[in-house]
């Protein structure tokens, strides 16, 4: 075994239990929409970049996006000569009970870890997606310049399974002087700013009003591609088909049943149903934390 082989074996994250859904995510692969691939990447980019900063990683380093908690993973941190080493991890996003070797681990803070330590996550008390960054960043092979898992296109690493081993990179930046970056937990009711259009004129005036006055509910038929909303069916004032057109992250597309779908990070590049409004870019990380059953209200962006 060469020194380099030992090095790649020596620094890994072993997935013992992925929980309901754990994927590798970075900030995605912009620039491929014209070939039918959307950006993908972390659903809550604010939380991923914070986790990376807390362990001295570049903001776009790959970490784990853990949906509904439930993950258990072992850290392998060895020097090239095989002797045990130490490192850091950080957990951000949906707050969940977390332990390292049975001892409580702080959230939104760098957590020192040693070779062989086991991280265990419980269920989040609010929000949906917890982010794990490990000092050095996860380094599975990139696809189209990114390590993000895109559940729509199948690009990037597959969703994680028990027994998967993810290599860690070498630290490139010094540890920050920050020991805690407290954030408010995700709410139970989400307020998102929405720009009307581009196809708001496909809907009856009362339905446009309904859209902004309703407390919508996120259904369980939701994922990284989109959140299906439950509420009053919106009525179109036009019949006929819309030729497929480009879709953006945050678009609220309304299929014939009148119930909007809020497109998240793995959204299709084009779609054939009218988009009544688009969530403000700054509110998209928050939208990535909406769990099934949560209430959602939309306010008009300006």
């Amino acid at each position: 075994m060469t020194l380099q082989d030992m090095d790649t074996v020596a620094r890994t994250v072993e997935i013992l239990t992925p929980g309901p859904l754990a994927t590798v995510q970075d900030l995605g692969r912009p620039g491929w929409s014209h070939l039918g691939v959307s950006r993908s990447g972390a659903a809550d980019t604010t939380s991923l970049t914070l986790a990376n900063r807390l362990v001295g990683n570049p903001e776009d380093a790959a970490g784990l996006e853990i949906t509904f908690g439930g993950l258990r993973a072992r850290l392998r941190l060895r020097r090239p000569d095989g002797t045990p080493a130490t490192g850091y991890l950080a957990l951000t996003g949906a707050p969940c009970p977390a332990t390292v070797n049975g001892r409580p681990a702080a959230l939104d803070a760098p957590v020192p870890v040693r070779d062989g330590d086991v991280l265990s996550l419980g269920m989040p008390s609010s929000g949906l997606r917890t982010y794990l960054a490990v000092r050095g960043g996860l380094t599975p092979p990139p696809a189209l310049g990114s390590r993000a898992t895109d559940l729509l296109s199948g690009t990037g690493p597959a969703p994680l399974r028990a027994g998967d081993t993810l290599p860690l990179g070498d630290p490139t930046h010094p540890m920050p002087g920050v020991d805690h970056a407290p954030r408010s937990a995700p709410p139970t009711e989400f307020l998102l700013r929405v720009w009307p259009g581009p196809r708001d004129d496909w809907f009856e005036e009362p339905s446009l009003k309904t859209f902004f006055t309703t407390r919508w509910e996120a259904t369980s038929k939701s994922n990284r591609i989109g959140i299906r909303l439950a509420g009053p069916a919106l009525r179109r004032c036009r019949t006929g088909e819309l030729p497929a057109e480009g879709m953006v992250r945050g678009a609220l597309q309304v299929p014939p049943n009148g119930l909007p779908v809020l497109f998240l990070t793995d959204h299709p590049v084009t779609g054939g149903y009218p988009v009544i409004g688009v969530v403000h870019e700054d509110d998209l990380p928050l939208a990535g934390q909406i769990p099934p059953g949560a209430g959602i209200r939309f306010s008009a962006a300006r």
Binding site: P30, P243, E245, G246, T270
Partner: peptide, 14 residues
């Protein structure tokens, strides 16, 4: 300009 997504009658410019 970030991306251009052409479709049958529209061009999306992000």
């Amino acid at each position: 300009v970030r991306e251009l997504v052409a479709a049958a009658r529209t061009l999306l410019v992000t």
